[in-house]
Design a protein around this nucleic acid. Structure first.
Lengths: 315, 315
DNA sequence: ACGGCAAATAACCGATCGCTTAGGCGTGCC
DNA sequence: GGCACGCCTAAGCGATCGGTTATTTGCCGT
C-alpha cells in the first residue's frame, strides 16, 4: 500500500473513471489500472467495480476512500509544512485546558517569545484533559499546563506543580438563586464539557444535569452572562478578580467550593526535552511567569480561538 | 516519501533513538537510519539531529511529526477498515445541518434501512453548509439534505427541492422581551455558529452580536431554555409543533420571519450515484419520507445529541 | 588521548514500484 | 452480429525501496 496507489484510487473514485484519473495524473491508463490492481490485491477487496457507465464502490472501497483521501492530502501537507519550515523559528507547542488558554496562554507566550528574542515561536492549543498527557508523551506537544498528568507512569512524563489557585462559583451580586444548585442555570465555557476538567468534576459532584448547562463560546462570555443575572458561572477565582472588584460578580457559597487546585507543568523527562521545552519549563518557574499566571491577561481574551486540531469527518 | 519511511521517522522521534526504533520495528539499525536518510533527502531537512543523549527535532521535523503520525495511523486504520468491511452492509452517508440531524435524520435512517431490508446502513453526520457540497462532490458523503447546494456548477452536483418549511423565532408565551431584537438573549444550537446556516443569516440580518448568543448543546435544549423564559430561540416551525401546541413556546414576530426555506437533497449526478445514494434519493421523494420530514421524530430527541464528527489529534 | 557507543555511510541484493507498449475481454450500442 | 469504448492483464524495464553486513564518523565520559 503506497501513497501513489492510494492517490490513484482516490482520483478514480472521485472521477468515476480510470481513464479520467490517468489523464488527470498525466500518466497512461494502465498505470492507474495497475495501481488499483495492487491495492485490490493488497487489501483483498475489489474497492471499485465496473458498473454501467462508471465505477461503483464496494463497502470496503467507500470506507477506504474517506481514509485514503485524508492520507493523500496529509502527504501534500507534510511536504509543504517541512519545506516552509526551513530555517524558520523553532516552535513550542503548549497545550492547556480552555480556560488557561483563554486567559494566560497569550501573555505567557508573548513573554516567552520576547525572552527568547523571537527565536522560539509559541503556539497554544486547547485539549481535553484525557488527551493532554498522551499529546506530550507522543511529542505532539512540548509542554502541558494544567492538571497533574503524572499518574500514568508508563508515559514517563514529568508533572510538576507550578501554581495554586481556587475554583469558585460566581454570580451577579443581585442574583436570585432559587432552589438547590442542580436547579440553577449554569453558564459554562466549552471546557466544562470535558469530563476530566475540574469544572465538570464540580458539576458532577453537585449533581447538575446537562440540561441546566448553557455553553458559551468562552469563559468571558459566560461570566458576562452571569453578571447580567443569567445564572451562576464556575471559574478560577483569581482570573475573575477584575469582575469581583468591580462587583459585577460575587462568589456564591456552594458545597465543595472553593476547590483548591494546583496547575502543573508537564513535560517529557529532562533528557528527552527539546531545548524549547526545557527553556519553557524553566521560564514557568520564574517570578515573571508567576506574575503572568496570577494576573489574568488584560482581561480581554481572543474572541475566537481556533485550536490547531485536525478535524475529519467520519475519521 | 513512503509510509515506511514516515513510520520509521515517527518512531525515532517518539523513542528518541534510532536503535530503539529499529528494535521496536524488528529490523536492523541501518534500515531505520537509511529510511531516515531518504526522508531527509527527499524533504531536504535534517528532521532529527543528534544532540547529547538523544535526537532533537528541527522545526521541520516537529511539523512533520504531527502530520506523519496521523498518516501512519490512518494507514493502519485503512487496512482494518477495508478488511472488516468484507461483505458488510453497504453504507450510505448522509450529511445535514445539525437541526435536521437532530430531528429527522434518525427516523429517516431507520425507515430507509427497514425499506432496504437492512442491506444498507445509514449514518448521518453534521456538517457546516460550506462543507456539505464538497463532501458530496468528493464522494465522502452520498447525500446531503439541507440547503440548496447547486450554486457551484463546477462541482457537478444535483440539488433538488424536497421540502418546504419556515424558520421562525420562538419564545415562552409569557416572555418579556425588552428592547430591540439585538438586545434579546438568543438561545441557539451549535449550527447557528455556521455562517452559512439560515439561523446565522437571520441573526446577521437582525444585527445580533455574538455576545448575545448562548449556545446550547442542541436545539431541544435551546427550546427548553426558551420555554423557561431564558430568551428567544430561532428554529424550524414545524419541528417545534409539539411545544407550540402545548403553549410552551410561541412564535415571536420578528422582522424577516417567518423565513421561507426549502430543504434540498443533493447528490452526485445520476450516472455517478451509488446504488445506495440513488435509492435514498428516490426514497426522499416518497410520501413516507415526506411524512417523516413533516413530523419531528417522536417529539423526544435523544437527550444527548452527539454529532458523529470525529476530532482526531493523531489518529 | 583513548575507548565505547550510537548514528551515518557504503556496498550489495532481491522485491516491488511505477511506468511504458501491446493485446485480451466485458459491456453497451447501433 | 459487429463495433467502439474502457478496464484489465501481460511483459518488460529502470528506479527505488527496504533490507542486510561491514565500516566509518562523531560525540561523550573517563
Amino acid at each position: 500500500m503506497t501513497l501513489t496507489q492510494l492517490s490513484a484510487f482516490v482520483l478514480v473514485a472521485r472521477l468515476g473513471s480510470v481513464k479520467a484519473a490517468a489523464s488527470a495524473l498525466g500518466v497512461s491508463e494502465p498505470a492507474v489500472s495497475q495501481a488499483l490492481a495492487s491495492l485490490r490485491k493488497y487489501l483483498d477487496d475489489p474497492l471499485l467495480t465496473r458498473s454501467g457507465g462508471g465505477m461503483a464502490m464496494t463497502p470496503g472501497g467507500s470506507r477506504l476512500l474517506t481514509i485514503a483521501a485524508q492520507m493523500v492530502s496529509l502527504g501534500a501537507e507534510a511536504e509543504s509544512a517541512v519545506r516552509s519550515a526551513q530555517g524558520a523559528a523553532e516552535q513550542l507547542r503548549l497545550v492547556a485546558p480552555s480556560t488557561i488558554v483563554e486567559f494566560v496562554a497569550g501573555p505567557l507566550a508573548d513573554a516567552f517569545t520576547a525572552r527568547s528574542a523571537g527565536s522560539i515561536e509559541v503556539s497554544a492549543g486547547v485539549s481535553a484533559t484525557a488527551e493532554m498527557a498522551v499529546l506530550v508523551s507522543q511529542r505532539l506537544a512540548d509542554v502541558a499546563l494544567g492538571p497533574y498528568l503524572g499518574a500514568d507512569r508508563s508515559l514517563g512524563l514529568v508533572s510538576e506543580p507550578i501554581f495554586r489557585c481556587r475554583l469558585v462559583v460566581l454570580a451577579a451580586p443581585d442574583a436570585r438563586l432559587r432552589g438547590a444548585p442542580p436547579q440553577w442555570p449554569w453558564l459554562v465555557e466549552p471546557g466544562a464539557t470535558d469530563p476530566g476538567s475540574d469544572v465538570s468534576r464540580l458539576l458532577r459532584a453537585l449533581g447538575v444535569p446537562e440540561s441546566r448547562l448553557s455553553v458559551f463560546p468562552n469563559q468571558t462570555a459566560a461570566w458576562e452572562a452571569a453578571g447580567r443575572g443569567g445564572g451562576v458561572a464556575p471559574g478560577i477565582a483569581h482570573l475573575a478578580v477584575h469582575r469581583l472588584r468591580r462587583r459585577e460578580l460575587q462568589v456564591v457559597d456552594v458545597p465543595g467550593t472553593p476547590m483548591e487546585l494546583c496547575w502543573h507543568a508537564t513535560t517529557p523527562p529532562v533528557d528527552r526535552r527539546s531545548v524549547a521545552a526545557a527553556s519553557m519549563r524553566h521560564f514557568l518557574g520564574t517570578p515573571e511567569a508567576m506574575k503572568l499566571l496570577r494576573s489574568p491577561g488584560a482581561g480581554v481574551p481572543p474572541s475566537r480561538f481556533r485550536p490547531p486540531v485536525y478535524v475529519t469527518i467520519w475519521s
